[in-house]
Design a protein around this nucleic acid. Sequence first.
DNA 1: ACAGATTGTTACTGATAAGTAAGATGAATG
DNA 2: CATTCATCTTACTTATCAGTAACAATCTGT
Lengths: 202, 202
Amino acid sequence: MARTANSNLREEVAALKRQRTLDAATDLFYEKGYTNTTLDDVAARLGVTKPFVYTNFGSKSDLLAEICRIGVRSALAEVNSALAQGEPTAETLRSFVPRYVESVLKSQKNIAVNIREEKNLLPEHAQELSDLRQTFMAQIEALLVKACAAADHPLPDPRVAAFAIVGAISWSTFWYNPGGRLSAQELSARMTDTILNLVGGL
Amino acid sequence: MARTANSNLREEVAALKRQRTLDAATDLFYEKGYTNTTLDDVAARLGVTKPFVYTNFGSKSDLLAEICRIGVRSALAEVNSALAQGEPTAETLRSFVPRYVESVLKSQKNIAVNIREEKNLLPEHAQELSDLRQTFMAQIEALLVKACAAADHPLPDPRVAAFAIVGAISWSTFWYNPGGRLSAQELSARMTDTILNLVGGL
DNA sequence: ACAGATTGTTACTGATAAGTAAGATGAATG
DNA sequence: CATTCATCTTACTTATCAGTAACAATCTGT
């Protein structure tokens, strides 16, 4: 038999089911909130029944944790990629911010759910995500400090500036409507203009 | 009998009980989340039993709605007061931002709960709070537009700027720790510096 | 001290939903 | 065609909690 081919297909099928489950849960948690969504709801949206969900996730809170991880990890990947390009300059910042905004809008639901449902995570998941977030904030702060230093424009309180920028951008997960006035790209550009003034119009 | 005096005392007692119930519920909803907090928990913190809570609030969600209202109303009062001082100028903005930040920090728990638990509100309460929030955002936008026009420093997209500022400040309800590095006043001052750069260093 | 109102408690109901055990269905293999 | 294995479903258990009805204690003024 085509042993490995078979095995690959199996894995792909499993991954697809897992992904669809995540998608359905993400939509529902975002629309109705975590506790107002039952696993029966999730299953129904997939056209299956509840135990199906348990073949891919050990519990409802595992599902939540995974949804949250996706959002944080994509944000972290973005800042790591910016830092990997060598010593940050004003230009680094100028290209990072719109990428970050677009990444946030892409995982809008994940991030909104992460923020809203933090208190519904199990302690170990909450800790894990809190650590990721802290790493992310430290990277943002480092990026800001170095970029602003390179531009000879030091920040009075880089930590507060980092929180302000991340807050301004994360906030869009609550109000941004993909079908509204602005496309994700347009918002990204305007948000970037706004944010870059925040560090003195680099 | 001292009819009115009696009546006043009764009302004061009732108001005190109501206030203490709100305080206990606010603390618990903030610490553990709305759905992870039972009305038995709230009652226990007050040293009473559950039906006591029902003498002041019709339901758990009424309690939540009232907690949320307090936060939004205080923010709204702040911007209204700024707009009531006549045509806004750069100076208006400069005095408004720190007041607003301090008001947010004062009702930190209410605002954090409001953001997190939006999906647990009854539709009518959600609508009411959404209307209040929309009014608030419109006022902020108006304040920004006028103040920046007066300073001959027009904003490219005032709506996005308004969301960015409100987001940056509201975000502090999630990370600010009253026992930490910065006092509320210090954070307020630094946040103001940061935010005011956001509109071009007025 | 005592009737009456007020206020709070004990003890319960009913509904909801997470999680699971046991069985049915259907596809791959000999 | 029969057997095995994986996958999904039906049907259930169990715990939790919002909300309430009926009772008890406390305070009020006469």
